[in-house]
């Protein structure tokens, strides 16, 4: 039983990070219909800015995350203003391809900055390798932090989308941008906020990627790529789907690593989420919680 408790806590921790990353993809997609692959690079940048502020500038962990959130939101906003917005009306894949280019540029820039790139970095969390007991089983305290903060953020986001005026506008834009504009919804402001929100989520996820027992390095960008099955499984236009998808992917990874027979290969835990993703696509192409667009013929 103690083994399962450790696995469950680790699954929830890693799944929470995937969920935050997935939410960034979903928020931008719902608001602007864009596949924003620069989210990967922004997440990595957020992690390193957290490190810079927390450990190099010695501002502390929480302040470090705050600084990273501001920077990441700004970068995300800049990407929207300089790339996504000018490409509005062009084929949608143009935005996707352009953001892939920005992602590559961002990750290259991070990798080229020697003080960041030449060492594996812990962003400066206060817990270090401390453990806490969960039902008597020692688990890293940082796992509990990741799970609880993610839960608060997710609940806050859902509340904002469901209950706030911005959330109403957001849902209106997601449903029909032109109709929303016609009814007086400030579409441009909604889009700006959505892209900034994605940046905030990316920064938070990036800081968690660099929180021990994980260590940050340029290749940590792979975390964001691993969240893509979570987006597809949950549904690209579903906030609830992103959360469930993230947790499912984290759990599948962890339990496959623990239980898969050797005959499945040494990377079975990395492949398993993609297998599930393909199964979901075959069964329900819009994802578990996504909604298919109804078109009148």
């Amino acid at each position: 039983m103690s083994g399962h408790i450790s696995l469950i806590v680790s699954s929830l921790a890693i799944g929470s990070i995937y969920a935050l990353i997935a939410l960034g993809f979903v928020v931008v997609f719902r608001a602007s219909g864009a596949l924003n692959f620069s989210h990967v690079g922004v997440m990595l940048l957020g992690g390193y800015v957290t490190f810079q502020a927390s450990r190099i500038w010695e501002l502390g962990y929480a302040t470090g995350i705050l600084v990273a959130a501001i920077v990441a939101a700004g970068v995300s906003l800049l990407i929207y203003l300089t790339v996504a917005r000018p490409l509005a009306g062009r084929p949608v894949m143009a935005v996707a391809i352009a953001t892939i280019g920005i992602d590559i540029a961002l990750r290259s820039a991070v990798g080229a900055y020697r003080p960041w790139a030449v060492e594996s970095i812990e962003v400066g969390s206060p817990w270090g390798a401390e453990t806490s007991a969960v039902f008597g089983v020692p688990v890293f305290s940082s796992h509990l932090y990741v799970i609880s903060v993610s839960a608060v953020v997710v609940v806050g986001l859902i509340f904002a989308v469901e209950r706030s005026r911005w959330g109403l506008w957001f849902r209106a834009v997601a449903e029909d941008e032109e109709a929303a504009a016609a009814t007086g919804v400030p579409v441009r402001r909604v889009l700006l906020l959505a892209w900034m929100l994605a940046g905030l989520l990316a920064a938070l996820a990036g800081s968690m990627v660099g929180t021990f027992p994980r260590l940050l390095q340029p290749a940590s960008a792979e975390f964001a790529f691993r969240a893509i099955p979570a987006v597809v499984i949950g549904g690209l236009n579903s906030i609830k789907g992103a959360i469930v998808g993230g947790l499912v992917v984290g759990t599948i990874e962890m339990y496959t690593a623990a239980l898969a027979p050797a005959g499945l290969g040494v990377n079975a835990h990395l492949v398993a989420p993609y297998v599930l993703m393909l199964a979901v696509l075959l069964w329900r192409a819009e994802g578990l919680f996504g909604t298919a667009e109804v078109r009148r013929l």
Binding site: A88, G235, L236, L281, A285, E286, G287, A292
Partner: peptide, 10 residues
């Protein structure tokens, strides 16, 4: 901005 259908995007 022209929107792509969710299924296609997926």
């Amino acid at each position: 901005q022209r929107r792509m259908r969710p299924r296609t995007i997926t």
